[in-house]
């Protein structure tokens, strides 16, 4: 019986350790920005190279997340989400192609 329990617990314990290891190693993150009421939820957000930004469009309108420097252009249908991976450090200003008043920034560090 004891052996059976150990066999069951061991994989669970290993998964736990692996999960802790990933969290502590500062691995790349996926950061979510909600698009709602014709605005990006975070006007400015701190990120690292290797992170991914995911925009979630909760509006009834089509939007885009379009980098001013051309590094990404993500089309966002109503209810859809889209991602961009961040490969270089710096401040990336972006906007919605359809609604030019919608603007925000990503602050990407090494």
């Amino acid at each position: 019986m004891t052996l059976v329990i150990h066999r069951l617990l061991l994989p669970a314990a290993m998964v736990f350790v692996v999960a802790l290891g990933e969290a502590s190693a500062g691995e790349a993150e996926v950061r979510t920005i909600v698009v709602k009421e014709l605005a990006f939820s975070s006007a400015s957000i701190e990120l690292h190279v290797g992170d991914t930004v995911e925009w979630v469009n909760q509006d009834i309108f089509v939007h885009s997340a379009t980098a001013d420097n051309g590094s990404f252009d993500v089309e966002l249908a109503p209810g859809a989400h889209g991602r961009a991976a961040l490969k270089t450090p710096g401040v990336i200003a972006y906007h919605c192609r359809y609604h030019p008043g919608m603007k925000a920034e990503l602050h990407v560090s090494e």
Binding site: E37, L38, F61, Y98, H99, P100, G101, M102
Partner: peptide, 16 residues
């Protein structure tokens, strides 16, 4: 109010 935000965005886009 959502309509107003939308119309304001459209006005800005039209001005550009």
């Amino acid at each position: 109010q959502t309509g107003l935000k939308l119309f304001q965005e459209h006005q800005q886009h039209a001005e550009h």
